[in-house]
Design a protein around this nucleic acid. Structure first.
Length: 812
RNA sequence: GCCGAAGUGGCGGAAUUGGCAGACGCGACGGUCUCAAACACCGUUGGGCGUUAAGCCCGUGCCGGUUCGAGUCCGGCCUUCGGCACCA
């Protein structure tokens, strides 16, 4: 008897040999067609958890599968190494962020290697390495040169817990995405990227193979609204320019009975009348104290106050009051609205609460518009109370009104987006320094490219101040102005870490290039990414930013093509055995290292892939492990112990067909990332082989070919055991460099087929027929069956449905 | 409230285009081997009726529809999970 399957001995052995043999090294001059498979790189939090395994192990299987299919596959890994946890560790425990981060990376690198993933470690990138962030800074300068980076004062989202501002995308329900602290508004001068310049193009997902939920979320996030900007003259001395408002319903303009400005609107101060000043100022002050969470609540009563001023509706010359209310947001549209209570629910609620007029300007088949309205209605038949437009049907109303506004010069068609520019400043230390210098005479001056990188200083004092710790390092901050050489100061904010990950996929193609982020040749060879795998939680952050980055780079002539990732696949979320998110407080965390120690990496990889569809995620329960372990043991057994006697060949044909069917099914399953069913099919073939060995009848050559095929099909899923068995059977190093088995349809063709016989749609019997049997033959055979005859009871078939190869249904 | 995904045995899940519901695995039960075990091996395992048996009936969240035939298609609900939410 051959020795037993011992993953603990063979897994480290093979990883060492793969390393020594450079098996996973990717070469640019390889002649096979290139294929770029990218999996989202981890943050070096300290430990590899089950979630990491769930993202990476199946991604590795997909990459290995592609390789065996004849592609030169780039499958790189690195670490998204800047970020708050390192700095928080510094503040809380006094450890150095750099040491903490690199210590974690060392540990996680070891854990990743244990997985047996086919990463080319020579291409590893770490975003906090100066060799990497030098190029992050370079990108900043390029964006600045192109006018896509700018500095502005704005109401920013301030997270008191993280002590920094956040991008809009990092605020969920008014709470910080990281720390769940309620976000505050602070007016600060910050750096932004003009992602809104690309809003329209970012809505176009043509030709992208991306999951529909992600494209939907991005579309919603960008939030394109079509409508018009209308300008209302303001009836206040000294305010000559009209007040612009954006509306999606210009056709309701005759129903505008008041205007509302956001409390932060710059006009508020100028138009407020003396007797209203106190009220308005109190309201503005109160608004600034309301948290974003409260302000965003739709449940809340709509508060607001009158400014005392009036605007003129340019369509009918009516004087309407101007109010301020915090349900109008200063950051959207023009920060001001015309309120049409009859046809907008929010305006209706406000009018009702504050006793303002409601004038319907559309009729409605179910509503008597001569009576006071009980609620706003948004769909109407034709315009009323609208002067010359009365009678215009709803579907012609908008173009008619906008056309009039354009002709008269008080408005025009307009498109507005919900998307805001990307705020990239962070008041934190552990990030990429923004390569800018503030000079009293020259203003804001970029650091010359030749001076990059601007290296993050060591030995920093961490105090929770709300300013970047960099501000306190005088010798770092003080610098000569590159233009006038006068003493100037460095920018002390650092870059949002999403900037590091917006271009990392580009660096992998040429990771050691000291001259530029990557060469044009490697860019053309590898980019864009063919397959990107990772979590859907990045749908409107990372994945939107990286698309913006790519398009900007394209417009600078640095990359070619319109999109950075052709195909995106989101795996689901892996949960604890109790069906909840794994967390220490719940005590449902499954540690991968324990499972690998007990059963080996192959077993753990396979179990994660076996539990269900990859995109579905779901509970992970180690109790399923025995099934996988039993399978691997059986695989070991059939591969190392052939049948005791040479068979006579009577069972060969069936084994060949079963093997071929497995090739066919596993190939299509792996193409569609259906790892669970692929493993099920491989288990079946393993069992088939074990049974065939038991019963004899399979000739030696057929047996050997079938076992060999099975090992090849297993290789992408369980790389270590496949390699060991391949070697033991005399295969050349390495199993992972073999060709994927080809499916031969002619070997599975059967002469006879079993078809189901139904009577009135219910299965009553099964008969075996030649594959090419005619309907008449099939019917004759079916009626000959006693069981069928009992149900037909001599009645004449009213109708017969025959699906060749599948079923025969007799309707009586 | 709006958008999206999903509801199938005790459990995880299978089921090209409508065509044998429950593949594969866990667990459970029974057995084999063993002094005893095991990550070893064999068998049974949706529910009900049927003494055994042949067999029959019911069964994919709920109600209705289309069809010779529905887990799959259509209409209406219910539940769960994700996402968005005063965006004019």
């Amino acid at each position: 008897m051959a020795d037993r399957y011992d993953p603990h001995a063979l897994e480290p052995k093979w990883r060492a040999r793969w390393d020594a043999g450079g098996l996973d090294r990717v070469h640019d001059d390889d002649e096979r067609p290139p294929y770029y498979a990218l999996t989202m790189f981890p943050y070096p939090s300290g430990e590899l958890h089950t979630g990491h395994w769930y993202i990476i192990a199946p991604s590795d299987t997909a990459a290995r599968f592609r390789r065996m299919q004849g592609h030169n596959v780039l499958f790189p890994i690195g670490f998204d190494a800047f970020g708050l946890p390192a700095e928080n560790a510094a503040i809380e425990r006094g450890v150095d962020p750099k040491e903490w981060t690199y210590g974690n990376i060392d540990r996680m690198r070891q854990q990743l290697r244990m997985m047996g993933a086919s990463f080319d470690w020579e291409r590893e990138i770490v975003t906090c390495d100066p060799d990497y962030y030098r190029w992050t800074q370079w990108w900043f300068l390029k964006l600045y040169e192109r006018g896509l980076a700018y500095r502005a004062e704005a109401a920013a989202n301030w997270c008191p817990g993280c002590r920094t501002v956040l991008a809009n995308e990092q605020v969920l329900d008014g709470l910080c995405e990281r720390s769940d602290d309620p976000v505050e508004r602070r007016f600060l001068t910050q750096w932004f990227f003009r992602i809104t310049d690309y809003a329209e193009e970012l809505l176009d997902f043509d030709g992208l193979d991306w999951p529909e939920p992600v494209t939907t979320m991005q579309r919603n996030w960008i939030g394109r609204s079509e409508g018009a900007t209308l300008r209302f003259p303001v009836d206040v001395e000294g305010v000559d320019e009209p007040l612009p408002v954006f509306t999606t319903r210009p056709d309701t303009v005759y129903g505008a009975t008041f205007m509302v400005l956001a409390p932060e609107h710059e006009l508020v101060e100028r138009i407020t009348t003396g007797d209203q000043r106190e009220t308005v100022e109190a309201y503005v002050a109160a608004t600034s104290r309301v948290t974003e969470v409260e302000r965003l609540s739709t449940e809340r009563e709509k508060t607001g106050v009158f400014t005392g001023a009036y605007a003129i509706n340019p369509f009918n010359g009516e004087r309407i009051p101007i109010w301020i209310a915090d349900y109008v947001l200063v950051t959207y549209g023009t920060g001001a609205i015309m309120a049409v209570p009859a046809h907008d629910e929010r305006d209706f609620a406000f009018a009702r609460d504050h006793g303002l007029d409601v004038v319907p300007v559309f009729d409605h088949c179910d509503i008597d518009v001569s009576e006071p309205l009980e609620a706003a209605f948004t769909e109407g038949g034709a315009m009323i109370n609208s002067g010359p437009f009365d009678g215009t049907p709803a579907d012609e109303a908008i173009p008619a009104v906008v056309g009039h506004a354009e002709a008269e010069g008080f408005g025009m068609g307009a498109v507005t987006y919900r998307l805001r520019d990307w705020l990239i400043s962070r008041q934190r230390y552990w990030g990429t320094p923004i390569p800018m210098i503030h000079c009293d005479t020259c203003g804001v001056v970029p650091v010359p490219e030749s001076d990059l990188p601007v290296v993050l200083p060591d030995d920093v004092h961490f105090e929770p101040t709300g300013q970047s710790p960099l501000t306190q390092i005088e010798e770092w901050v003080n610098v000569d102005c590159p233009q006038c050489s006068a003493t100037a100061r460095r920018e002390t904010d650092t870059l949002d870490t999403f900037m590091c990950s917006s271009w990392y996929q580009m660096r992998y193609v040429d990771p050691h290039n000291p001259e530029r982020p990557f060469s044009a040749e490697t860019m053309r060879q590898w980019l864009p990414v063919d397959l990107y795998t990772g979590g859907a939680e990045h749908a409107v952050m990372h994945l939107l930013y990286t698309r913006f980055f790519w398009k900007a780079a394209r417009d600078m002539g640095i990359v070619e093509g319109d999109e950075p990732m052709k195909r995106l696949f989101n795996q689901g979320v892996i949960l604890g055995p109790d069906g909840n998110r794994m967390s220490k407080s719940r005590g449902n965390v499954v540690a991968p290292d324990d499972l690998v120690e007990r059963h080996g990496a192959d077993a753990f990889r396979c179990q994660l892939m076996f539990i269900g569809p990859w995109d579905q995620g779901g509970p992970y329960n180690p109790s399923g492990m025995p099934g996988i372990v039993r399978w691997l043991n059986r695989l070991w057994s059939v591969a190392t112990e052939p049948p005791p006697d040479a068979g006579d060949g009577s069972g060969s044909r069936e084994l060949v067909a079963a093997t071929q069917r497995t090739i066919r099914d596993v190939t299509s399953d792996l193409e569609g990332f259906r790892f669970n069913t692929a493993i099920a099919r491989l288990m079946e073939l393993t069992t088939t082989l074990a049974r065939a060995r038991e019963s004899g009848g399979v000739d030696t050559a057929t047996w050997e070919r079938s076992v060999e095929t099975l090992i090849l099909l297993v290789a992408p899923l369980a790389p270590h055991i496949a390699e060991e068995l391949w070697e033991r059977r005399g295969g050349a190093f390495s199993v992972h460099q073999q060709d994927w088995p080809a499916f031969d349809e002619s070997l599975v063709v059967e002469e006879t087929v079993e078809i189901v016989v139904q009577v009135n749609g219910k299965v009553r019997d099964r008969v075996t027929l030649p594959v090419d049997a005619s309907e008449d033959d099939a019917l004759a055979r079916a009626l000959a069956s006693e069981r069928v005859a009992n149900w037909v009871e001599g009645k004449e078939p009213r109708r017969v449905i025959y699906v060749p190869g599948k079923l025969l249904n007799i309707v009586v």
